[in-house]
């Protein structure tokens, strides 16, 4: 197997989601049949309208469904070959999957730097390692360094998104799950954040799965996209193809030129 992997014949398993079904409160079916995969080094976009199941899919992957009274009812999720069903969220973070929650969820009462630090303790780093991790994140988000001692709850929306991403980077992830990073932010800030994500992907090989409602924005940066609607995958493929096919626009998404659905 390893030899086949080295020869590039078989891709090593990374993230594989197979036919998952998720429910909230034991009765509300949120995902019917979602399958997707992310390969190492890829940026994959998960697009679809509000309520399509993007957040549920991400939380199923990071095992955070339980915290929202949700549960996985069927299907399997494998992370680097290992089934994740029985793992705690903290086990998954330790294995390299970290999620940036929709709506940012910064610790408003903590300072920017304390927020970042909360992400850094998992691996019990030495003081020096921790400082190095912090410097690395400040390198990606210089603006956070200037605001390091400000209370996170009092920073701007864009800064909070950076705190949320930076905090997740402190866990040294291999796969970053980003839930609606553009939510409520000015286009120029969104562009800045996407550019940083793209650079993290290029320069550090970070794999990213981004859920986004505004598809045309994220498709510019993603290698592939998966389209969700009402808890099902309705289309998928390379982003360029999807964007060119006009299928996305026909499905409901995107800019002002999207036709209405009826």
């Amino acid at each position: 197997m390893t030899r086949a992997v080295e020869a590039g014949l078989v891709r090593p398993p990374f993230l594989d989601v197979e036919a998952i079904e998720a429910v909230y409160g034991a009765s509300i079916l949120a995902l019917h049949d979602v399958s997707l995969s992310v390969a190492r080094g890829e940026i994959v976009a998960l697009v679809g309208p509000n309520g399509a199941g993007k957040t549920t899919t991400l939380r199923a992957i990071s095992n955070l469904l339980g915290a929202q009274r949700g549960a996985l009812r069927g299907g399997t999720i494998r992370w680097q070959g290992e089934e994740t069903r029985r793992l705690d969220p903290s086990d998954l973070v330790a294995r390299g999957i970290v999620q940036v929650l929709e709506g940012r969820h910064v610790f408003g009462q903590l300072t920017v730097e304390e927020n970042l630090l909360t992400g850094g303790y998992l691996r019990r780093p030495s003081r020096r390692q921790l400082a190095a991790d912090l410097d690395r994140v400040y390198g990606w988000f210089p603006r956070l360094k200037e605001r390091r001692s400000a209370r996170a709850g009092l920073t701007s929306g864009g800064e909070q998104q950076m705190v949320a991403i930076g905090r997740a980077l402190m866990t040294r992830p291999t796969l970053l799950l980003l839930d609606e990073p553009s939510m409520g932010l000015a286009p120029i800030i969104v562009a800045e954040i996407f550019a940083i994500i793209a650079r993290l992907n290029r320069e550090e090989g970070l794999s990213v799965l981004i859920a986004e409602q505004s598809a045309n924005l994220v498709l510019d940066h993603a290698d592939r996209a998966i389209v969700l609607e009402s808890g099902r995958v309705v289309a998928s493929g390379p982003s360029a193809e999807l964007a060119a096919s006009g299928r996305l626009a026909a499905l409901y998404l995107g800019g002002a030129d999207a036709p209405t659905r009826h």
Binding site: V93, A94, V98, L110, T118, G119, A168, T171
Partner: peptide
């Protein structure tokens, strides 16, 4: 370290979970 994590948990439990805080 414990104290900062503790304040994080107090502030937003879901976010703390998402970062792998026990």
């Amino acid at each position: 370290r414990i104290g900062i994590q503790l304040r994080g948990v107090a502030n937003d439990t879901l976010a703390a979970l998402s970062l792998g805080i026990d």
